[in-house]
Design a protein around this nucleic acid. Structure first.
Lengths: 164, 164
DNA sequence: AAAGCTTAGTTTGATGTCAAACTAAATTCT
DNA sequence: AGAATTTAGTTTGACATCAAACTAAGCTTT
């Protein structure tokens, strides 16, 4: 605490941490919630820039990966896996289908359910996006350090799974 | 990697991690970006629920804290500290002023700039919110574990500051 | 001191998101 | 079998956010 936290000290980070002014963050500096948000935002922005360079929206990446890894997955399951509400998925899938990256057909067994699969074009786009994501990850790894990386991810998973 | 990651195993988490189905997360499971997003989302939802119980929006909390700790702060600096675009702050400040939690007056030295301060009512609300946030943090601490907490926050800060 | 540049904040338009209401299909109950 | 309930996906309405264009005030340069 008095851990004012070093942020106001001199950085040229992208979003919120650039200023020579010294800000008093009070308790925020030592709270997980706030730092989690700042880190997530920064990482997202970084990936966003990268993926826009190759003309794709960053949000499509997890969606395409999940479809690739779980062929025939339904929208509801996909939205759960992806941590978004199913209603958010509707326009995303629409867009992916429209652009010919995903194929979507009703299940025979249950005609409410859609079955999603990547098209060859979708696979190709995913390959490109994955390369891009790998560079991004390598970058994050450098910041985190190989020593802490595994533990760090473990904690993130634990938070996602267990927080009340 | 083969760390398919344990998520599909059995959880009742709030947002995206509840399902008995086993999903193949592919590389996502071991990537920082994805796990960061899932953790942030879960933590945010948890705090959101708590703060709504006391009738406040979760986003107001950091804003009020920063104003309290930096009396007379300007909107631009506040938005930087908070990691949001200055344009996002406009309606937030409007709302806080309207509800009598924040006082905002033009600076004498530079009449473009606003000078923000908490009103007594604002201080009171912040006290309540802070109590609520402390409970939330205690909860997070339990999940993270005292041993790793400090290092974990350090890494989050590092990501926020250094990621390209 | 007038012209041009910079800065603080607002407005506008696009996105992404959630939650609740809705539709249609499937299942369960009696 | 018919009614009631559940489930998959869509629609709608609210909100948060960003980025770019804008306005007004201040600063700089000549």
């Amino acid at each position: 605490m008095h851990g004012t936290n070093g942020i106001g000290s001199r950085r040229r980070g992208r979003n919120g941490e650039a200023f020579g002014l010294s800000i008093n963050f009070g308790p925020l500096g030592s709270w997980v919630g706030f730092n989690l948000r700042m880190a997530q935002e920064a990482a997202f922005q970084a990936f966003s820039r990268r993926s826009q360079e190759i003309g794709e929206s960053p949000g499509r990446f997890a969606t395409l990966t999940l479809i690739a890894r779980n062929p025939g997955i339904s929208q509801t399951v996909l939205s759960l896996a992806n941590g978004r509400d199913k209603s958010s998925l509707t326009p995303v899938v629409e867009d992916l289908v429209r652009r010919g990256l995903v194929e979507r057909r009703r299940m025979d067994s249950d005609r409410r359910t859609y079955s999603l699969n990547l098209t060859p074009a979708g696979k190709k786009v995913l390959t490109t996006l994955t390369r891009c994501a790998r560079r991004h990850e390598r970058n994050l790894d450098q910041v985190i350090g190989a020593r802490d990386r595994k533990r760090f991810i473990q904690i993130l998973k634990k938070i996602a799974a267990e927080i009340e």
